[in-house]
Write a protein that binds this DNA or RNA. Structure first.
Length: 574
DNA sequence: GCCGTTTTCGGCCCGACTGTTTTCAGTCG
């Protein structure tokens, strides 16, 4: 699938055109097309081959031609032309807050600045302030931004870090100041895999007390801004958190606005205009009289546009609004639908807790079952188990199952390692002792695409293996996915009736939302959501896996661990 | 450059903030 690659080219082209001062709407068209491709659950190259590119809303004749040219030759004429006009290193300047495309172009034409290096020199020589439209203040800000750059490179943080942190702030605020309503917004609420900053909205009678308390919390390293109704802090880990107090009458509209995504909101506002309304963060207004119509509750914003409430995780402008207009919004899976965890490690291998401890936690969650799936012997570093070890573990599981009979069920599983030749740790005969076998790649990530793909397919042919764990092997922020032909995997998974895992560990979230969406839409696959927990704490990661599933528009029926104990038992025997 | 149960031409989201301005462009989310 070359979607990401093609999207990036179009984004790049848009950036060049922006700097060159091309018409805003033209640029937006490229960005919009790129975004569509990025979110497309089909390989763009297939659509191109079939001449169906213009079926995608936002791609017309012009962009379709450019995509085809890129796919065939690796180049786009228009992009190459742009590169002749401005040096590619000029794009670096856009990373500086306060310098946009117009600013970059001015700096280039007036001062010949071609890169961050040049910019730094010009700032030091105080040349920036002499250009029209710039001044001493701007120069100072650029200098500051250049100095801060290393810090800023910490970039986006994992949902698994941001989510608990946001909950901590919410709980602290609730417990210490008078809060009426409170909601975490932004990409956390949409359960995006990584988060830029944390946005929290509240209504309160005493905004100043909220601001005082928030800016003096123990997590605060630096108070970036403190106002009457909005404050920004940096935590010790350099995570930015904004808290804003809004009027109760605007709370719903503000939550809608700050939840995003930006593109979703643009579509909502466009729809509003067609219906004679204006939507902003303060409410929904009649465009003629400017009279407020609603905005206290978030669902009102949708309902006034004849839309049902759209779950935050779906708000990415991937077609959810059109679907909602048609009354075809799927009922996506919820946390309460989850009846068990399909992937948990214990201290038999590299986990921290005993089976009993895990069972008790699962019961606390209201689960009906859990799949214990410790590593097998070939994964020495993770304390992989031999058949003898597994048999010992089985005895303990049997005992516990007797003890919890009628209340909870432990499935005796394993997580096999798909070796470099596609074989697994044990023979098929040996695999018979397990209730369910999982298998995943844990070594040999750097093999070429064909080989890795064949490896996984070979493992899928083993009858006892039901679930392929973390199918792409990525670790967010540290390791890219290995080269794997996912479409081929999807096809064969369907063929052999295998389940692909949505691994809920925050560093993995693998499959990701787009992959899972493609797996369902195109191949009709089913998935398991497993935490891959190595401790009791890890069991809580289920919410992130469910978040991915919701972002992929999966329903309860698409996820095997929403099955009841009875159904699940039957399912894994088939 | 794209799009159309109000349009094949004339539109294309909204508001705040900043720094530079004397009415606004650029940037940001």
């Amino acid at each position: 699938m070359r979607n990401k690659e093609v999207a990036e080219k179009l984004y790049e082209l848009a950036q060049y055109l922006e700097i060159l001062g091309e018409m805003r709407f033209k640029i937006n068209a490229y960005i919009e097309a790129a975004r569509k491709i990025e979110n497309l659950p089909l390989p763009i190259e297939d659509l191109a081959k079939e001449g169906r590119l213009t079926e995608i809303k936002g791609i017309g004749e012009g962009i379709a031609k450019k995509i085809i040219q890129y796919l065939e030759t690796g180049k786009i004429d228009k992009l190459e032309e742009a590169k002749q006009k401005i040096p590619p290193t000029l794009l670096e300047l856009l990373e500086i807050p306060g310098i946009g495309p117009r600013g970059a172009y001015t700096l280039y034409t007036k001062l010949g600045i071609k890169s961050l290096e040049d910019l730094k020199k010009a700032v030091e020589e105080k040349k920036i302030r002499e250009i029209e439209g710039f001044g001493p203040k701007k120069e100072e800000n650029i200098l500051k931004a250049l100095m801060d750059r290393k810090k800023k490179e910490t970039r986006r943080i994992l949902l698994g870090i941001a989510y608990p942190l946001s909950q901590y702030v919410v709980e602290s605020l609730k417990n210490n100041v008078q809060i009426d309503k409170i909601e975490v917004c932004g990409s956390i609420r949409r359960m995006k895999e990584t988060i830029g900053d944390i946005d929290i909205l509240v209504t309160s009678n005493s905004p100043e007390k909220v601001m005082d308390y928030f800016t003096s919390m123990d997590i605060v390293k630096e108070v970036v801004a403190k106002g009457d109704t909005k404050s920004t802090i940096l935590t010790n880990e350099d995570i930015q958190i904004d808290v804003r107090v809004v009027e109760p009458i605007s709370f719903g509209a503000a939550v809608q606005y700050f939840t995003g995504s930006k593109q979703h909101n643009v579509k909502i506002r466009e729809l509003a205009i067609k219906k004679g309304f204006k939507v902003n963060e303060y409410g929904v207004f009649d465009v003629k009289t400017d009279k407020r119509i609603c905005g206290e509750k978030e669902e009102e914003v949708y309902n006034i546009l004849d839309l049902p409430f759209i779950p935050p995780e779906m708000r990415e402008d991937r077609g959810e609004i059109e679907l909602a207009l048609d009354g075809k919004l799927p009922k996506i899976v919820e946390m309460k639908d989850i009846k068990g965890d399909t992937h948990v490690h214990t201290k038999y291998s590299d986990g921290e807790n005993s089976i009993l401890e895990i069972v008790n936690k699962c019961i606390e969650f209201g689960y009906e079952y859990v799949v214990i799936a410790d590593h097998a012997k070939s994964l020495g570093v993770a304390g992989g188990l031999s058949i003898k070890d597994y048999k010992k573990q089985k005895r303990e599981i049997d005992e516990l199952n007797n003890k919890f009979a009628g209340k909870f069920r432990i499935f005796f599983g394993c997580e096999l390692n798909i070796l470099s030749d596609g074989s697994v740790d044990f023979s098929e005969d040996e695999l018979n002792i397990f209730d369910i076998c999982l298998a995943g790649i844990h070594t040999g990530f750097s093999q070429e695409k064909k080989k890795i793909t064949e490896r996984i397919i070979k493992a899928m042919k083993i009858k006892e293996i039901k679930i392929i764990t973390h199918p792409t092997g990525r670790l967010l922020g540290s390791r890219d996915e290995y080269e794997v032909d996912l479409e081929e995997i999807f096809k064969e998974a369907k063929n052999y009736g295998k389940i692909l895992e949505i691994n809920a560990t925050p560093e993995r979230l693998d499959l990701n939302d787009i992959n899972a969406m493609q797996g369902k839409e195109v191949y009709g696959l089913k998935f398991s959501i497993g935490t891959d927990a190595h401790s009791l704490y890890g069991l809580y990661d289920m919410r992130y896996g469910v978040g991915v599933a919701r972002r992929a528009w999966l329903t309860k029926e698409d996820i095997i661990n929403t099955l009841t104990l009875e159904e699940f038992e039957k399912f894994i025997k088939d």
